[in-house]
Design a protein around this nucleic acid. Structure first.
Lengths: 206, 206
DNA sequence: GAGAATATTAACCAACCAGTTAATAAATTA
DNA sequence: TAATTTATTAACTGGTTGGTTAATATTCTC
């Protein structure tokens, strides 16, 4: 059997170090030497617990998804909450979470864009989202003429895009919107919560 | 003086090769050896025309911005077109352009996220967008009670986010929306053009 | 405490990296 | 055509990369 304490210690030390460095510099920008050094561990230990840089990266990526706030999506599966309330909660929760961890989220998206073939499967089995509840809710609301008949996928794409955009591509929006200070930007994002909701509702009810 | 023909030839060959490889694999993922080989040029020539990998990359990045479709933003500076028309044209033009060059756009955003300090200045002087015309138009329309009084920056952020989102982070949206086939995805994006416009207008007029 | 399993280390490896150099070829100028 | 500038090349450099190995230290089991 393993000697528990120190094993978990070193393995976790490696993972934590890898997490920080990968997130900061990206998969291609980081070296295992640096990761080992920051973990204060011999480089060979890295290959004792993880058998390649790629494997280590994949575990880090999985962890990053968990902590990114993407899982907020699963709140959309709740059938007991009315549609509009759910939308509001989703927007607020997603924005709040993204405001806390913007870098992690940006990391996930960047790596996903750069290595889609390898990483989508990790995404798929880490987040596994079932859209059926939301679909039904939307269609039933349309049946009752409470909202217009819209494509549920478009709703999801709209809300998500509106929330993510200015956060994960902050550098771009900083330039376009000409907002440089941190506090100003945060205020701008706070203001968005209400706007995104209003915009969505006004679209659904016209 | 330079020997024009062959000079331009080789320099351009290098730039083109660098462009393709950088866009495909990203700045950190690409090596100059590969770039030289694909350009069918001696590696030293790379340092004859560009004095480092970073310089070469920056030129590629600049070129990528030009071809990415980001410049469509500048149509918003036109004061002769009515607000709603301008919005419609911006959405259509941006979407169309992005549909043609989704990878380039993704590249620009990824690199910008990864190296904001170095690349924002290139972005700033490549795109230089003046928001004042749009601001005035919006405020005047609000004065005339044609639209609600909204923050022009939020309008810009909304439209842009809605257009960019599902295109530059396609892998993510493919999973969330569960759309795998290329044609289905393109149709989805086409459908969005109208939806984004409707959504924006309904928000502005409530 | 012997033996086995687990954990850790330093030294090593070949391939690759960005970048240089010094010599040469080709074109321009005079 | 001689001198000069511009273009091109092969070979090289020093450092880094991801990854291995073989020996050793530590811990667990009995």
């Amino acid at each position: 059997m393993k000697e528990q304490e120190s094993t978990i210690d070193t393995k976790d030390k490696i993972l934590e170090s890898a997490y920080n460095i990968f997130v900061e510099k990206g998969g291609n920008g980081s070296g295992i030497k640096e990761i080992a050094e920051k973990a204060d561990v011999n480089k060979a230990m890295l290959y004792y617990y993880f058998d390649s840089k790629e494997h280590l990266f994949k575990e880090v990526f999985r962890k990053a998804i968990e902590e990114s706030g993407l899982k907020v999506l699963e709140t959309m599966e709740d059938s007991s909450t009315p549609l509009f309330d759910k939308i509001k909660r989703y927007i607020d929760a997603l924005t709040d979470h993204l405001l806390e961890e913007p870098i992690i989220f940006s990391f996930v998206m960047n790596e996903l864009n750069r290595h889609p073939e390898v990483l989508t499967e990790i995404l798929v089995d880490t987040i596994d989202f079932d859209r059926s509840v939301l679909d039904r809710q939307i269609n039933e609301a349309a049946d009752r003429y409470e909202i217009a008949r819209i494509n549920p996928r478009q709703l999801l794409a709209n809300i998500t895009s509106l929330c993510l955009g200015p956060i994960i591509n902050r550098s771009y929006y900083s330039v376009v919107l000409d907002i440089s200070s941190e506090s100003e930007y945060r205020q701008f994002l706070e203001e968005r919560k209400g706007i995104i909701y209003d915009m969505t509702i006004s679209w659904l009810t016209t």
